[in-house]
Design a binder for these strands. Structure first.
Lengths: 181, 181
DNA sequence: ACATTGACATGACACAGTGGACTATGACGC
DNA sequence: GCGTCATAGTCCACTGTGTCATGTCAATGT
């Protein structure tokens, strides 16, 4: 039997860390911030996971840990092996998105809830999505990197879709009330 | 100090299981199938998690495990306590959606990839989203429950947004090629 | 009758990802 | 000097995902 070579695949968090480190050395805390800034709403890095992965990456020599700096901040730097591993990872086609949208679940159970409560839930989410859309629109044109800008453009299309859908839901809820009369 | 009462909060998988069990007794396998059918693309239940949660729910008497049936299938049934716990959970406003979209991450790292590869990634995803949109459109009008239908309507708005965005990305990629000339 | 195949069904496990609690450090205002 | 707050890292429990192993039953061919 051919024994499978180690392969040492990167998980997606590790891969994105290597990616962000191309911008220069950064600490775990900064990396979380960078990811949040750049595509926070469509790609999450959590602190715990980041620090764990950095430790693992360091042990694999894909990054090197610098000396602890000012605020006990420890910068990590990409190694050549790290660059190579990232390039390999990038060559794989990205997987499908995953979405978990509790509001949709709640709506699916809508028969168990009174309509005003549902309306309230939708309204609460609506303000959130309006805020996001507004913010995306505000920053999109200032992003120099066209591809990075297109990720924000995704956000714009997404939020517009969500808002249009919410309008529709409002109409549906009213229609149900009218029927129930 | 007021000691916090146990509260015994449900996680969202457990809650959705209780919700789906309102339709009648079902086994773990069936529950996964039901969830998949009803809102599969925007709410995931994985088998492992479902079986774990069913065991936990049973130990809390929120469901009762029936005798193992035909294909070693074990049906679970909602108890009154389960119904109550579900009602309590429903009264909490649903949290924000979370989305992890690897393609966006890849795009954010677009400077490290040649444009044709990117185009290929986008094209691959495109067929997937076209297929989904088509399917949602095909079934939406046949869903009797208006609220359930609105979850599919979400899918329609979402996929339309994604497709419009992909068109935009294609233009952006072409523009970058033209510049690079 | 009996083996083969394949859909159905459960479970075990390892790993990835999340969220909260906790500690410590240093900048800043007072 | 002292409190406060953002910064920064660590730990831990739990939730969620993906894969593998095992078993069940029906249909099919021989």
């Amino acid at each position: 039997m051919d024994r499978t070579p180690p392969a040492d695949k990167l998980n997606s968090t590790a891969a994105s860390l290597l990616g962000f480190l191309h911008r220069g050395p950064a600490s775990g805390y900064e990396l979380v911030g960078i990811a949040e800034d750049l595509i926070g709403d469509f790609w999450s890095l959590t602190r715990s996971q980041v620090y764990r992965e950095l430790a693992t990456l360091a042990s694999r020599d894909l990054v090197t840990a610098g000396p602890v700096g000012p605020r006990s901040r420890r910068p990590y730097e990409l190694t050549d092996a790290g660059r190579a591993a990232f390039a390999t990872w990038l060559a794989e086609p990205p997987g499908a998105e995953q979405i978990r949208f509790p509001l949709l679940l709640t709506l699916a159970f809508g028969t168990f809830i009174d309509r005003d409560t549902l309306r309230g839930y939708v309204a609460e989410h609506r303000v959130l999505h309006e805020r996001r859309l507004k913010q995306y629109l505000a920053i999109a044109d200032d992003i120099a990197d066209k591809l990075l800008r297109s990720t924000v453009r995704f956000g714009i299309h997404y939020e517009q879709g969500v808002l249009a859908w919410m309008d529709e839901v409002a109409v549906t809820l009213d229609a149900l009330d009218a029927e129930g009369e």
